[in-house]
Amino acid sequence: MIRTLIVDDEPLARQTLRLLLAQEPDVEIAGECADGPAAIGAVRRLSPDLVFLDIRMPGASGFDVLSAAGTHGLAVVFVTAYEEYAVQAFAAEALDYLLKPFDDTRFRHTKGLARNRTTE
């Protein structure tokens, strides 16, 4: 099972990810967070395999979350409406960079990447 954490400050965006991931038999949702500090705590406590991470959030940015909680063995997918953070994201060894809005095909591609990474 791929233990997955969802981090986004918009309730609707979290609900969408939950819904899209529920169709995957090998994905287990370990938790959800709506802001930076909560995400730092959740990554440390739950040590998930995969995190869907918003960048602009209350309290701390997605990059702050990674530097505070560490990324050891963690596959990170950034999900954001801002395209200007892509270079920084891949410098932080992101698995993927999902630009909002995305369609189902694009999301399946992300899930494929995550599956390859976590079963290595």
């Binding site: 969408t16 809005p101 995305f102």
Partner: peptide, 10 residues
Amino acid sequence: FNTLHAIASL
């Protein structure tokens, strides 16, 4: 972009 994403989510 955020609004379009919200519409897709709805």
